[in-house]
Design a protein around this nucleic acid. Structure first.
Lengths: 341, 341
DNA sequence: CACCCTTCTGACTACGTAGTCATACCCTGT
DNA sequence: ACAGGGTATGACTACGTAGTCAGAAGGGTG
């Protein structure tokens, strides 16, 4: 092998090696019909031998599509968004699409738009808003490019949009029903930030379960997903003896709340039952082990990818809305209230 | 604007609009010299007006570079790898490189290679092994493509490789020195899986601190990063009254260990001091709040990107090795042993 | 004033793939 | 034997950008 001439092989090299035309190589690589088994085999052998790999850039240029989906996620290691991202990447490999991630960072204004911009610069065919936040400003994206958002909010008008829920609504509902089913008179709620769709979904589910039971919903306390805010909420709720059951919108805040309760001398679950959300890996090893809601991120990711890819390849998009089921993971932080034991 | 004709504008459209040649538009977009201020301004205005965006595919095809770095990460939501990923994405935006992530999943054999393959198919210019695991098999990657690994292991030979550490060694050393400094006779270690460079780095740091102090290292217990494995380790260590200080290789395992100790009736920190690693967000809200080691992921990411980009653009690579400092976050899970109080 | 050098601009073309279209071949039925 | 339809292959070309090279315009020097 002449040292000087070595460079990454192209389809013409494979073609020469296999004694066919470049176009035939292209056909084989794309699995097109109308190639004889014998030629297909020869081409594949030549490709293998030369270590041929299709040039993505040339492909994209020719096809006018990049086969790439951009995900706007959150620049944090919150378990929910991080897990969704992992699931998305895994599911994406089963498709012909690659994934690009752009994070927004708290405190940076226009975080979503700057993330979206960087994705558009990369040339993505569709955009996914994985942790949609209402920044109070309109989202300006070319209406030709499909957008999938996990939850809607004002400012999305005029986009080629698909909205899907994750499992927030179902989770909120189930968690609340579980606590009411244990005999608690009502259920308090420590919510996520109101600008987050995910937070609003969970709160809606909670409220609906109370409504169905004919119970007036207490004022929810709004946290920021952090353990610190859960701790604050815990300190506050601990002072009210009426509080016997709390649904916390994520496990990180629930951990903070657990500690707040402990410091205030309120025993969990003896005096206060707590349900978290996400089933983070450490949830089972807290004191007490945390009852929580689990989302099936693989299913959510797969569903979202299907919807978005369908938008990219076919239909000229219309808004829709659906929600996937969540699952209760029963541990020791919930129990019937004193009065019912 | 005629409805039918609208499609994404190309540089020739901008050129026509601004009354210059396509090449001049290219010059302006790339910030090349030898363009008069007046023309530059006109071109930029035209580009803005038309919503022009360079076509990445055509650019990549022409340049022969994709300006994309592939990161092989772990398909889990372990705090460490997840945080590094976030930091990498953030730092990458300051460069001209985009990031692609491919996760490997435990239990899937050849996980690294299949992740690498999917990155190479995307056409990345360089590869980063973010959580390098020794799978016991050689890594077969084209020696032309630079690889940066956070820690070395056998099987990387023959690659165009740069090795850098994260902060594992320093963290292990500092954690152990802290515990010895409190007066503990020795320090036990709950390590991560031996195939992980990160786990080995931390163990090396721990062992080195003991060596320097002239203390024989107890046999480390190997976990798998999960709270469950930490719990097992905790139950085991709790039975040995000699154990008064433990350095745990990540916070998730430390949480499991805390619970294992609690269930066995061993008080932390009164009877056993515990140092974790990572400073996960909930660490401050555990019972007791966890003393732990913090890595500066932004610095690690930025350093790694610099090294890899340098490899891509310049030097024909040589192995090197360095390590960044870690920082002790002092909380309440560590205290001097009974004998010294 | 001729010359050269610097600054600025455009025409032409390569990059590697897949779409379009033309064509050659083979089998089946009459 | 021949028409007709499916099968198999190749020549040519477009995709949008930036590199190369040629050349025009302007300014300073001997």
């Amino acid at each position: 092998m002449s040292e000087a001439k070595r460079r990454t092989p192209r389809s013409t090299d494979v073609a020469r090696h296999a004694g066919v035309s470049q176009k035939t190589v292209s056909r084989v690589m794309n699995g097109e019909p109308y190639v004889s088994a014998e030629v297909r085999e020869r081409v594949l052998a030549a490709a293998r031998e030369l270590g041929y790999r299709r040039n993505t850039a040339a492909r994209a240029l020719n096809l006018g599509r990049f086969h790439r989906i951009g995900v706007v996620s959150l620049g944090s290691s919150l378990y929910g968004p991080a897990s969704l991202l992992v699931a998305l990447e895994r599911q994406a490999r089963a498709t012909s699409y690659a994934l690009s991630v752009a994070n927004m960072f708290e405190g940076e204004s226009g975080g979503v738009m700057s993330a979206v911009e960087s994705l558009l610069d990369e040339g993505v065919d569709g955009i996914m808003l994985s942790a949609p936040i209402d920044e109070g400003q309109e989202l300006r994206i070319d209406p030709d490019i499909p957008v999938l958002s996990f939850g809607g909010f004002p400012g999305l008008e005029g986009l080629r949009l698909v909205v899907t829920g994750a499992s927030g609504f179902d989770a909120g509902r189930l968690a609340t029903e579980h606590l009411l089913g244990l005999g608690h008179a009502t259920v308090w709620h420590v919510a996520g930030p109101g600008q987050w769709s995910a937070a609003r979904d969970r709160a809606r589910g909670w409220r609906q379960a109370l409504d169905v039971a004919g119970i007036a919903a207490p004022t929810p306390i709004e946290g920021d997903w952090s353990p610190a805010s859960g701790y604050e909420a815990g300190r506050r709720l601990a002072t009210d003896p009426e509080v016997t059951a709390v649904f916390v919108a994520n496990d990180e805040m629930a951990i903070g709340l657990l500690r707040g309760m402990a410091e205030a001398g309120r025993a969990v679950p003896e005096e206060v039952s707590v349900v978290g959300m996400d089933d983070i890996p450490v949830a089972a090893y807290l004191s007490p082990p945390l009852t929580t809601m689990r989302q099936d991120f693989e299913a959510i990711a797969s569903h979202a990818l299907d919807l978005l890819i369908d938008q990219i390849e076919n239909a000229p998009g219309s808004a829709m809305r659906d929600d996937l089921p969540a699952q209760l993971v029963l541990r020791r932080s919930t129990t019937p209230p004193r009065s019912k034991r």
